[in-house]
Design a protein around this nucleic acid. Structure first.
Lengths: 192, 192
DNA sequence: GGAAAATATGGTCAAATGACCTTTTTTCGC
DNA sequence: GCGAAAAAAGGTCATTTGACCATATTTTCC
């Protein structure tokens, strides 16, 4: 059950078995059905989340009810609503499963004690934060400057494996374009 | 010269005079003329930057030469190209002065030793990182979901003081809309 | 103070995009 | 495997947006 996580941790850190056991021991496993929510807007994000298997999406909803996807979280990635988790305030985004998935959950207090006690884990966490910041910058720049076609192209280059796992309307919601525009782009590319 | 910075630090941290002096002593002051660059795409960002006075912009350029503004940095804010600074790799963004400005610069190695030695500074730095992440999320969501008019409205609410300090074309470059669209929005609002 | 540059506005037009709707195809869940 | 639901694709049309151009206004800087 947890072995996927162990593989991940061993690949990304140098931890002794004791620390690894302690990290594992504080997590609970949870299965999610397709479309099941892990966090809803307005709730407080109380856990650090690691995706063992499957695919999650983090999305906000606009005034008109439309969904806009901030992030996809596939197996071997971490997720949460940062601001809600940090400050324990109501979340402004939702997290839900795209596919049937399996996640590990650590209550915030537990994870913080792990971070305080295990420098290698802390260092991993900081790397992840840094990467997150770089990615956000790049994504923002793309959102500001790219045409729909360029956005789609960048997406296919960055996440080739997601193409087959996501319905197109979610890709559109991630790129900030309409489904119609996305299918038009794809049709145009087929004809070439 | 440095007093602005001292006021800022005292307002946001609890530092003793010794630490404060040490932080100040490692910085150099630099004046910038309007439109002068502090960092150009491809260069390596070697300094942590604090804006004493004035206004900077951080922007990327697209293939067609158009500029897209990632961030404005007014007096009493910090800036840099994160990825370039962290990893000492070529920057993908430019930083330039919008107004005549004055900044403090710390060479990376010096600032790192300050962070290592002064916990209050480290804590301030972490707060700033956190805020940066929240803002990026919000900005991305807006970029994905809002209409040009909503984007402009949110901008005026968030940064009322910037309106008078920025040429419209920069606001457009920040919002990811054309200057034409922006002036249309403003005209429509005048008529009401 | 005055020339030059930057900025803002306006007009026109073509193209891109999204809203709305229907139909076909695929996938899901029991 | 089958019925229901979800997803994809297609059609049509009105609207928004941006490109390009000219012009007016303001600001900058020597």
């Amino acid at each position: 059950m947890m072995d996927e996580f162990e593989i991940y941790l061993r690949a990304h850190t140098h931890l002794n078995d004791g620390d690894l056991d302690r990290i594992r021991s504080l997590a609970t496993t949870k299965g999610l059905r397709r479309n099941e929510f892990l966090l809803r807007e307005g709730e407080i994000c109380r856990h650090k989340i690691f995706v063992i298997k499957g695919l999650l999406r983090t999305f906000g909803t606009a005034a008109d009810g439309s969904e806009h996807i901030l992030q996809f979280s596939p197996e071997h990635s971490w997720t949460l609503d940062v601001e809600s988790y940090d400050r324990q305030i109501p979340a402004r985004s939702n997290i839900a499963a795209v596919e049937n998935s399996q996640v590990l959950l650590w209550p915030k207090a537990d994870f913080e004690s792990l971070l305080a006690d295990i420098p290698q884990l802390k260092s991993l966490a900081q790397q992840l934060i840094a990467r997150n910041i770089y990615n956000s910058r790049q994504r923002l720049l793309t959102a500001l400057s790219a045409t729909p076609e360029e956005k789609y192209h960048e997406f296919t280059q960055s996440f080739p494996d997601f193409l087959a796992r996501l319905p197109l309307h979610m890709i559109a919601a991630y790129l900030g374009i309409s489904l119609k525009t996305l299918t038009r782009i794809r049709q145009a590319q087929l004809r070439r």
